[in-house]
Write a protein that binds this DNA or RNA. Sequence first.
DNA 1: TCCATGCGTTACTAAACGGTAACCAATTAC
DNA 2: GTAATTGGTTACCGTTTAGTAACGCATGGA
Lengths: 120, 120
Amino acid sequence: MASCDKSSKVDVRDLFNALGDNTRRTIMDLLAEHDEMTVKQLSEHFPDLVRSGISKHLMQLRKLNLVYSIKRGREQIYRINPEVVSNVLRPWVKKYEKYWDDTLIRLKQAAESSKRDHDE
Amino acid sequence: MASCDKSSKVDVRDLFNALGDNTRRTIMDLLAEHDEMTVKQLSEHFPDLVRSGISKHLMQLRKLNLVYSIKRGREQIYRINPEVVSNVLRPWVKKYEKYWDDTLIRLKQAAESSKRDHDE
DNA sequence: TCCATGCGTTACTAAACGGTAACCAATTAC
DNA sequence: GTAATTGGTTACCGTTTAGTAACGCATGGA
């Protein structure tokens, strides 16, 4: 629960502003891979950063509702807010899907045409 | 042709660094929508920016091989580099596809279970 | 030829941003 | 009880960066 229900406020601008930083994007990628992680676990993936740095990035991600957290003992468990990914990232990606479709089609056509005749 | 063949150098870091800026992401979105545009056409979508600003962003996008340009008369035609979108954006997106799949499944399950029993 | 148009490029400045250090509160282990 | 762990918060600093202004350079039309 918590701040997971304000996902309607997130726009594509916030999303990419967050993803524009390498550390934050890696945090998101790690959360996408492991489903849930503590700050400690996350910070172990960033040996060049002190933990407060990670915490600050998580603060931002939380404010933008890209992630949410629940408390368990003295640990804080972070998870990706799936609504945001589904409602913001997915529609944006749709605009670019034609490019990999086109690329596939083009590569296929090129492969086929080079099989038949390779005049050029 | 031109600088379209160096797409192997682009990584996800460069991509999101570029997309992190609102102007650059909008430029990419416009190019994705219109296939090809001149600098003039692009700058008409940014009434708050002078043309040199757009040009600077395009310079960046070109250096990162996210777009390429060809000259036609005194105009410069810009297009998205489809290889980059296909080779960099697509693999990254794959990590997050499960979220909208999960969301769909979860919404479907919720709808079904609330049909049967809605005991909070 | 002369002027307007379309772009690129270079300093420059003001603002934003990432990272650190230091401190705090809450929880767990001893 | 005390000490250690976990992580949030704030102030601060150095760097980056977006946008502008001003210039140059072609191309196209008169």
